[in-house]
Amino acid sequence: MGIRDIIEGKRQWRAHVARIEALPPDYRIVYREIQKYLFKVGPAELPEILPGIAEFFEEGVAGGKSVMQLIGPDVAAFCDDVIANSLTTPGAAGR
């Protein structure tokens, strides 16, 4: 990994964080809980999963849904489903 890769990675992360900060407060709170859970579990697909969740949340906001309508009452169960989906369906993280 060269310096350009590191810089590009930081640029992508900052853009991702900006997307999250643009979400309504309840979505941001749930996203941070999801992020904490996924950082603890540590799936290798994390760089693909988090942007997928951001996109999923943006679609939920655009559709006028509450975050709990999207993920259900259990954040951990939602995360486990996302991880299982990402392991069985390449490129489908967060959907």
Rank of each mutant, 00 (worst) to 15 (best):
K10A: 07
G2E: 15
R95E: 13
Y37N: 10
I29H: 14
I49Q: 02
R95C: 01
E59L: 13
M1N: 10
R95F: 08
A84F: 13
M68Q: 12
L50M: 15
D80F: 08
L46G: 04
E59P: 00
F56Q: 03
Q35W: 07
N85E: 15
M1W: 14
G42A: 14
R28N: 08
I71R: 00
Q12F: 08
P24H: 05
D74S: 14
F56P: 00
P51R: 12
D74A: 08
I6F: 14
I29E: 15
W13G: 01
G72L: 12
P25Q: 07
P43M: 07
A15Q: 03
R32Q: 13
I83K: 05
A84M: 10
G72V: 13
G2T: 12
L23M: 05
S66A: 15
L46R: 04
R95D: 04
I71E: 01
A76F: 05
I29D: 10
M1R: 10
E8Y: 04
Y27D: 02
E59S: 12
I7M: 12
E8G: 08
R4G: 03
S66E: 15
T89S: 09
S86D: 11
G9T: 08
V17I: 14
I34W: 01
I29W: 11
A54D: 08
R4N: 14
E58W: 06
Q69I: 04
D80Y: 03
E33F: 05
D81V: 04
G63D: 12
I34C: 09
K65T: 00
P47H: 10
T88V: 11
P47Y: 11
F56L: 12
A93D: 03
E48K: 02
L23C: 06
